[in-house]
């Protein structure tokens, strides 16, 4: 008798507690909701989006540092204003001489897929039209349309600065900041050191770290 009553009371209390748990108490800081869009679609930002560009003109690294400690660049035109490119290199993947070390590992592309003499200031699109070095992304986009569209939407490629360009500017990478045009796969690298699950100076730490398995 007594026990039965007690258990009922207990069940009710628990159910009440559970219900309270589900619906929660008053939330002191309610989550922001999307009743009003924070900014009008397509509205201009207060700060610009800059495109990071590593070099001003097309060229090749000299292999030495300049006075500022940066890799010295030799613009293409230094030589190719006077020298015609050799025709036997038209479909080469590796060439010698001054360009020794250039190796193209980029699908089926060869030198002339992008470089077209005599216009060494920029590149050549597939339809023959020229494209400036600054607009190299148009060149890449010919094949990599998906990536180019993702980039345009801000879904592909690194950036630094502000997500909110009403607060500050943002600098974005373009294709060849991350992908070398000749070997676009990102090179294999040693990952940053692993965090330890516990303190190094703990006795037995070595054993514990060794225990880790995924």
């Amino acid at each position: 008798m007594h026990r039965g009553e007690g258990e009922r009371v207990w069940a009710i209390a628990l159910a009440l507690g559970a219900a309270a748990g589900c619906f929660g108490g008053p939330d002191p800081r309610p989550l922001a909701r999307d009743e009003v869009a924070p900014r009008a679609p397509g509205a201009a930002w207060a700060y610009p989006e800059e495109l990071h560009r590593p070099y001003a003109v097309l060229g090749t690294n000299a292999g030495v540092d300049d006075a500022n400690g940066k890799p010295a660049r030799i613009p293409c035109r230094v030589c190719h204003d006077r020298l015609e490119p050799k025709d036997e290199n038209r479909y080469a993947l590796r060439i010698g001489g001054f360009h020794a070390g250039v190796a193209i590992e980029h699908g089926d592309l060869t030198c002339r897929s992008c470089h077209e003499p005599p216009r060494f200031e920029g590149f050549r699109l597939q339809d023959g039209r020229p494209v400036a070095y600054a607009d190299v992304m148009r060149l890449c986009a010919q094949c990599h349309g998906l990536q180019a569209r993702d980039w345009q939407r801000g879904l592909h490629g690194g950036m630094t600065g502000h997500w909110d360009r009403d607060s500050g500017p943002r600098t974005r990478n373009h294709c060849i900041d991350c992908h070398h045009a000749h070997r676009p796969a990102i090179p294999r690298m040693v990952p940053a050191p692993l965090p330890l699950p516990r303190f190094q100076d703990e006795p037995g730490q070595a054993a514990r770290t060794g225990d880790l398995d995924g």
Partner: peptide, 9 residues
Amino acid sequence: QLHEVVEYT
């Protein structure tokens, strides 16, 4: 939670 095995003594 990420299926890492870290033992405990």
